[in-house]
Lab assay of single mutants.
Amino acid sequence: TKKDTKLYCICKTPYDESKFYIGCDRCQNWYHGRCVGILQSEAELIDEYVCPQCQST
């Protein structure tokens, strides 16, 4: 049987260590910077990140 692979981001793909991720400070989920429109250089300046799903609630 195929091992359950945890899926990340709004694009629902397995973790890829070569890509940049940003963690939501509300739901603790991880998102590709590219998918949520945040560059790694911008993320370093953000104190708290809230993902699109949490922003809409």
Rank of each mutant, 00 (worst) to 15 (best):
T13C: 03
S56I: 07
K12G: 07
S41Y: 09
D16T: 05
F20W: 11
H32Y: 00
I10W: 04
K3Y: 06
Y8H: 13
E17K: 13
Q55I: 09
Q55T: 07
R34W: 05
P14Q: 06
E17D: 13
Y49V: 04
Y15H: 10
I46P: 12
H32W: 00
H32L: 00
L39F: 13
S41A: 09
S41F: 08
G23I: 03
C27V: 01
I38Y: 11
C54I: 00
S41N: 14
V50H: 05
R34G: 14
C11N: 01
I46V: 11
C35H: 02
Y31C: 07
C9D: 01
Q40F: 07
E48N: 15
T13M: 08
V36Q: 01
G33T: 06
C51F: 01
K3R: 09
H32R: 01
Y31G: 01
S56Y: 07
K6C: 08
I38N: 03
G33V: 10
D25K: 15
K3H: 04
T1L: 06
I10E: 09
Q55M: 07
S56N: 15
T1C: 14
C27D: 00
G23F: 09
T1F: 12
S18M: 05
T1Y: 11
C27Q: 00
R34V: 15
K6F: 06
Y8C: 12
Q55C: 11
T1V: 08
Q40A: 11
I22V: 12
H32M: 00
C51A: 02
S18Y: 05
R34H: 14
Y21A: 14
Y8L: 12
I10S: 04
L45P: 05
D25F: 08
Y8K: 15
E42M: 05
K12D: 07
W30F: 15
C11L: 01
Y49M: 04
G23A: 10
Y21E: 06
I38S: 03
P14S: 08
E17W: 04
I38R: 06
S41E: 14
S18R: 06
Y8D: 15
P14G: 04
C9S: 01
C51D: 02
P14A: 14
G37F: 04
K3N: 04
T5V: 05
E17S: 11
T57I: 10
Q53C: 08
F20K: 07
L7K: 07
